[in-house]
Structures are given as C-alpha cells and as structure tokens.
Design a binder for these strands. Structure first.
Lengths: 141, 141
DNA sequence: TTAAGGTAGATGCAAACGCATGAATCACGA
DNA sequence: TCGTGATTCATGCGTTTGCATCTACCTTAA
C-alpha cells in the first residue's frame, strides 16, 4: 500500500461521508443532488455551455446527462438551443427559474459545506484546494 | 464564496476527473467500479461485515446495496450468512473467488492510482491523507 | 467537390437505482 | 412479561443509468 493509495482511499472516504451527509440534509427540494450539480455548473460558467463541456464536469455518462438535461428543460429550469456555430451541438444555460432554483438550494447547501469543512484550519483548507487542484489537472501544460 | 466552499468544489472536481479516468481504464473485467468497491471494502476489513456497516463505506442506498450484494452472492464472489448474534442481520465476507477477483482488479487499479497521484509530492500526499482523514471524521471526539 | 473519418448529441433497451414500505428481530421501560 | 419504538435488511415500483448504436454535422485532404 503506497502513500498515494492511502491518500486516494482517504479522499474517497471523505467524499462518501460528506456526500451522504449533504444528501441527507433537507435542502434539495424536488431536485436530486446530481440535478443540482448540473444547475450549479451552468450557473458557475456564466455563458452557455456545450453538452460535452458540461459532461466533463459532471459524473454522468453522456446519454444520462443528455436525458437529465431533457428533464430540466421540460421543467423549465434549463434552456437548450442550437449552437449557431456548430449545428451538431447545443448551448445550455439556466432559465431565470433555473437560476432562482439554483440559488435557493445553493445558499443553504453552501452553509452546510462551510460547516462540514469547519474542522479544518485555514491553512488546511488552502492546502486541500491546492492539492486537489493539482489532481484535477489545473496545472497541466 | 468561502475558502471552505472553494476547497470542497476543488475536491469534488478532482474526484470526478479521477473517477472518470479510472473508469475509462480497462481493468474492471465484468464488474462495475461500484461492485469492485464493495469487494474492496470487504477485503480490507478482514472479518465479516454487517450490511449496515458496509453501507457506511459505500455511496449507495441501503436497498441498492442489498441487491448488489444479492448479485455478488449469485455470482459466487460474496458469502452472506446469518449473524448468530443478531438474527436481523447478516455477515458478509469474500469467497475465495471473490478475493481472487478483488486482487486481480485491485493490483492494476492500484498502479493507476499511484500513477494518477504521481503529480503530488510526498509531503502533499501526506497532507492530503491527513486532511481528508479529518473530513471523514477520523478524529471525532 | 466529395469521400472518409471524427465529433456532438439523441435514442432503444436492459440493468441498476432510490423511495417508500414491509417483515423480523432487538432493546428497554412499565 | 409485555408492549412500544428502534434497528436490520428485503421487496414493490417507478425512475434513472450505462452501453451500444444511430443520425447529423464538421473537418480534412485528394
């Protein structure tokens, strides 16, 4: 068991523990956490997002994401329109209702996150962000 | 956006990126990553495990885990027998075939993990393990 | 211009999931 | 001892997921 494997296992466990904790909280309304994640990614990225780009940030297969977007469009939370520059693709963005929903869920959830990570010092939070940033490939060349 | 929220978002992104990467690798045979995770948890914990205990380590609902164990028993990878001390519960353990399967997948996967975390220094690996350990509640009192 | 190969997203279908609930057992105070 | 509430795991059922595949469109080069 290398240090790398221990670190990864520890990360996975932390992820599982916190995800279960967040999931159990009563802030999600009639959305699932995964659906909220999609709304969040769209809210974060300002402009419209391509399906493939969004898929890179979400832990879902391409067909599953495609259908989840279907449902979110159906419910009036997401707007999907053809990309004028590439007629294969689509441009996804939040509707006003979607933005509102994202905020209504995101605010209390953000507080939960802050509370859950309250066991860490400021230095540790900084280190965690830097280290996981490297893992996600933020420093790639 | 607090530091805590940034750190959590970064952790989630690292998790998503690495999980997608690992999932794309051709080491899982006819198991899903989730099924492998169950085998791994069982292999790690030496003795037999209760369903509820196992469920604490796996990101699945209790019914989903119950049925996944069904399938693994069906396939001869897991042994499920009644707990003599508590007739509501069960004791789960790997069969020899299950242990073999876990190792056959675990070895190459462990190498992938080591490779993926190779971007981190020894100090960073150590910090990551400590910090995520705290998040998972290893230091509770 | 056009053929060949690549990329974006949608769809058919079987498998797996979560929620609500059920049956059995345990724990504990009256 | 008995009854009330909690705990453990299983099951019914509608929804969601992933895999394989499809269509449509873009790109490149001859």
């Amino acid at each position: 068991m290398t240090r790398a494997n221990e670190a990864w296992e520890s990360l996975m466990k932390a992820y599982a523990v916190l995800m279960k904790q967040f999931n159990a909280e009563d802030v999600w309304g009639d959305l699932t956490m995964r659906e909220y994640d999609v709304l969040y990614q769209l809210s974060k990225c300002g402009g419209p997002l391509r399906m493939s780009e969004l898929n890179r940030h979400v832990l879902l297969s391409q067909p599953a994401l495609s259908r989840m977007v279907d449902r979110l469009v159906e419910r009036g939370l997401v707007d999907r329109c053809p990309d004028p520059g590439d007629r294969r693709g689509v441009r996804l963005s939040l509707t006003p209702a979607g933005r509102e929903t994202q905020l209504a869920i995101g605010r209390p959830h953000a507080r939960s996150v802050t509370r859950a990570l309250g066991v860490l010092s400021a230095d540790e939070l900084e280190q965690l962000a830097v280290i996981t940033g490297k893992l996600a490939g933020n420093e790639e060349r």
